[in-house]
Each structure stands twice: as C-alpha cells, then as structure tokens.
Design a protein around this nucleic acid. Structure first.
Length: 296
DNA sequence: CGCCAGGCCTTAC
DNA sequence: GTAAGGCATGGC
C-alpha cells in the first residue's frame, strides 16, 4: 500500500470531499461507512474508487487530505479532485449576484471533479429523470456486475466496466439493475464505443459547442447529458448543463436568459455566468438549489 | 393516489 | 427548426 497526505491549507480555496463527491457530479466513489450517497457527513469515512485498475481512497481529517492506494496516487488524485484549481480565484470570477454569492458561501471547498469519460458518459445517460442517489445506485450496480474486481487492503472494489464488457450485457440484464428505459441507450452507446465508432474523449479536440454536438451522437445523450460529460470529465468549464434545477434558477433569478431553445438559453446563461468558468458556477448553483440553504 | 427526478426518443408539423 | 407524447422506477 502506498499512502500520502496533502495539507488542505495548501490548496487555494480548500477542499471539501463530501461536497465534491456527493453533489451529483461523480458517481464513482463509494463511502467506507456504508452510508448512502448524499447521507450524513462523516469525516472518518473514506471515499474509495477504482480508476484503470488502481484503487484509491481518501478522506479529509484535521486539515489533511489523506490517501491510500495500490499505486502512487498523488498525481491521479490531484487530477480526479482538481486540486490545482484556485477556488478563490474561481469564486472571484463569478458574477456578484445574491444567488451565486450564497451558493459559494454555503458550499465552501466544493471542487469540480474530472472523472473518466466513458464512465461519466454512461452515468449521465442513466441520470435522465432520476434522482442523484439512484444514479449512484445504478452506476454502482453496473460496476459490481460488469466491472473488474480489484482487491485492496482486504476489501473488494470494482472498476467501471469497459465498453466491451458493458456491450455484452442484455437489455433485460440492465433493466434488472433498475435502469428502466435507459437500458437500451446504455447498451447501444457501449457498443458504439466498443466498436470504435466514436469515443467521448474525442470531444476534447473540439471547441465547446461542436464538442457538445459531437457527444449527442451517442444514444441517450442530448444537449444536457452532453454538457455534463463535458463539464465533469473533459475539462469544459464553460459548459452549463440545463437541468430542471438550473431551469428553476433561471426562471426565478435570470428570467431574461430563458431564450426558448437549449442552445440559445445555454449561450445566455453562460454569458451571464461569465464565460470561462460558467460551469463551475453552475455546479454551485445546482447544489444550492437542490439541497437548500439548511441542508449543507 | 399523483407528482417529480441532473431528459431523450420518435413522430408530426 | 419546434411541440407533443411515451417512457421505468422509487420516494414522498
């Protein structure tokens, strides 16, 4: 086992793993205390994931981000949790309206994640008309049933399935895991990636709007899911997923940004949120709208 | 029971 | 290009 410790006060703007990993961005971390996704905060619990066959677990206690891993995970953890982001500068970049100010105030230390593209693509296909706790449950089930098992420190974890393994499932199998009408979408998208027709990571080479358009070729991926994949796995910090909560925020706080179509409303709210980090600000507003002020 | 959840698909204009 | 209807499932 390799281990490490990162002083949190060395990270500009700090880090709150609970907010970062249980705010509906990443569905690939499990808590060691068995608490459900979005349950009570527990500083003693580890967050554990598997990336490319390597297990990493981490937690923040006494001002230190501890990690344990099958490998030297310092760089990988820094990428997954975007530890190089200057949260203070990003917060300062946000427009100074009351909603955004309150959202940043309520969720100090929440960072964007950078998850593996294929897992993110599948997770957000599953996310359609679904609550975040159930999305986590579905992604967990997919990993358990089709992902490679990895032993670490006496515990078994599962990597996210490869496109090939997932494409080998049947629609009935996936419906049994609770995916509902998303089951054929997941199957067909997994097959597309497995067959080399397209890969979500290829969107990295494109500008933002063409990248969003590119991702919608996958079955079960519309503009909203595409924006989530761009924001949470491909580094497009300007992507603003227009989900029910953000649409509610637009209706209540930025009604002039509702331009009817997704593309036009997206441009308007992206400009309202200042462009380059619009998606970062969106994530704060999303979590703030969804959890409310008291539920931090 | 009805309504909602990080929507997308097909079909019809 | 936009509008309407269908779609699984669990939680409240």
């Amino acid at each position: 086992m390799e281990t490490g410790a990162i002083p949190i006060d060395e990270l500009a703007g700090g880090l709150d793993p609970y907010l970062t990993l249980e705010s509906g961005q990443s569905y690939r971390w499990r808590r060691s205390d068995g608490e459900m996704y979005g349950g009570e905060r527990n500083p003693d619990a580890w967050y554990e994931t598997v990336v490319d066959g390597e297990v990493i677990r981490t937690r923040a206690r006494d001002g230190v981000l501890e990690w344990e891993s099958t490998t030297d995970a310092d760089t990988l953890l820094g990428r997954l949790l975007r530890l190089d982001d200057d949260l203070e500068a990003i917060a300062a970049d946000a427009p100074a309206d009351a909603l955004i100010r309150d959202a940043y105030e309520a969720h100090r230390g929440m960072r964007l994640v950078e998850d593996p593209p294929f897992a993110t693509l599948i997770a957000f296909i599953c996310s359609a008309q679904m609550r975040v706790r159930r999305i986590h449950r579905m992604v967990d089930a997919l990993a358990r049933e089709y992902g490679t098992a990895v032993e670490f420190d006496g515990r078994t974890s599962h990597d996210f399935p490869t496109p090939d393994r997932l494409a080998g499932a049947t629609e009935a199998d996936l419906r049994d895991l609770g995916l509902g009408y998303r089951a054929p979408y997941v199957l067909e998208t997994a097959r597309m990636v497995a067959d080399g027709e397209a890969h979500p990571a290829d969107a990295r080479e494109l500008d933002y709007e063409p990248a969003r358009e590119y991702l919608t070729r996958f079955v079960g991926v519309g503009d909203k899911v595409a924006d989530c994949v761009l924001l949470f796995s491909l580094g497009f910090d300007e992507a603003v997923p227009l989900d029910t909560w953000i649409r509610k925020a637009i209706a209540e706080y930025y009604p002039e940004c509702d331009r009817g179509s997704y593309a036009a409303t997206s441009r308007a709210i992206r400009e309202r949120f200042g462009g380059a980090y619009a998606g970062y600000h969106q994530t704060y507003v999303f979590h703030f709208m969804r959890t409310g002020i008291s539920d931090v």
